[in-house]
Amino acid sequence: MLAVFKLGNSVLKANSNLFERTGKSTVAIFKQLVEMFSFVGETAVAIAKSVIEPKRIRWRPILFNIRSAGFDALPIVGLLSFLLGVVVAYQGADQLRQYGANIFVADLVGLSMLREFAPLMTAIIIAGRSGSAYAAQIGTMAVTEEIDAMRTLGISPQEMLVLPKLLALIIALPLLTVFADLFGVFGGMLMARNQLDVGFVEFLDRFVKAVSPTAFMVGVGKAPVFAAIIAIVGCYQGFKTKGGADSVGRQTTRSVVQSIFLVIVADALFSIVFSLLDL
């Protein structure tokens, strides 16, 4: 009897622990959301100040970031989109051949690459490549007191560190997406000729008819939003770094996971909005 009582008690205790933990992590999630929003707010204020007083904009770091996040990422973005185009065409080839609809490979590759795969793929690569670099750079600066030093020298870390990265990525990501479009379609085109006997000329002929400029704009239009998500999450996680070097690693990982998560969520929201708008 006593044993049963004890058991019951411990179950109750375990339960209250479970509730407590659930409660605590829920509060932590909300806290982080609020913090993130306040960070977005601070960034917006910094942007407003730069618009009012354009000489505050730091062009050198912007150009530097365009090079490191944009130009330097061209090979990896090009290669992966090319492979993605190859895969899409290859997977579609079997199905299309069964119906003798070989030429529709241009629709398949064109629409899927331009609307979805190119912007999403590019955003994910950049989140892993640049978002993590932003978090690590700012995180290291926070650990070595450089952020504090910046504040005490009267330099706004937002203006010095966040705005250049944000602006650079908003400029670079749409351009990278166009580059990814090109390589993805080229990959699909090669595969179409190889597997489905659809020549380059036929493919491009069909491509122009099947893919409207809207499809292209829809894809590229998503890129600045993804860029903002990646830059803000990366910088925010960097600023949150406290303590030692292990914290830098933790925040960097977190920045990549969160920015990829948010990019995919945003992409889903875009799909809903675009379908409501019949785009």
Binding site: T144, A149, T152, L153, G154
Partner: peptide, 27 residues
């Protein structure tokens, strides 16, 4: 106020991306 005081940090707080002279000249 920030222009009227100077702070020396425990670990220096110097900017790693700048040389020492650029660091000193930054303010």
């Amino acid at each position: 106020l920030r222009k009227r005081w100077g702070v020396m940090f425990q670990h220096g707080g110097l900017f790693g991306a700048l040389t020492v002279k650029e660091n000193v000249g930054l303010p």
